[in-house]
Amino acid sequence: MELLRDLIFDYTLRNVALGSALLGVVSGVLGCFAVLRRQGLLGDALAHAALPGICIAYLLAHAKTQIVLLLGAAVAGWIATILLLQIVRHTRISEDGALGIVLSTFFAFGIVLLTFITKRSDAHQSGLDKFLFGQAAALVAEDVTTMAILGGVALAIVVLLYKEFKLLAFDAAFAASLGFNTNTLSVLLTSLIVIAVVIGLQTVGVVLMAAMLVGPAVAARQWTNRLSAMIVLAALFGALSGLAGALISVSDEGIPTGPMIILSLTAIALFSLLFAPERGLVWDAMRRRMQKAALAD
């Protein structure tokens, strides 16, 4: 009960919980498309690629205005996407290799810029290093508002283009034959994932962002075969783990929010894999054992 009261009246906790839940919803929804298109690790690459963008935006604008930094992150993520596409399309390097290349070199360049900035200016004044590991505890109401607006736009686009995205996710070739511009749709969907990543950087950081996109979708997939239900469930699971992470982290000293969100999410995904009706692995094992027993008789 006390927790509930804090959740409503405690300024910090309210922002952290709201921000984390918001992130869970947005990345849960977009993650469904990414996972179904077998691009689960695209978010990971984009999150890493955002770092140099944030640093360059800081150097150019001489300010840490959130929206400027996020814009930098988005531009860098976008450039990374284009590079990724070029490598996969024009060379014999696999998508897996291209992801690794883009992820590690962009991030390395980001680290160079980050250390360059840190040594020139006051060590932690820039506050850029919070993007590495995320700092949900430092979210203020203004951040949450920005997150809500960005996330709202992304979700609205998903609703508007739901049919197109659905077709793209399940049968891109068919979509193309119907006359949809699959290239444009694909770039648009990736741009929306960039938005989710940008929202997530402040909360869970570069490394853990991958799970925010993959986790809810994988968990939700186990419970249903319908895309619409899967999206709703993923949003729910994302929000739930965001809330849980925020609440666990305030329950004791020195517990970071981001990792707790990810661990809650992992627990939900594991539970779904094991116990979801029909697809659950436990039921699978039991069915097999019963069949064996029936055969033995």
Binding site: L213, G215, M260
Partner: peptide
Amino acid sequence: GGESAIGIVFPAMFALGTF
């Protein structure tokens, strides 16, 4: 899927480590 399996396992391990 293969890439999703990776996307679940390593963040969980890393989160455990940072925690």
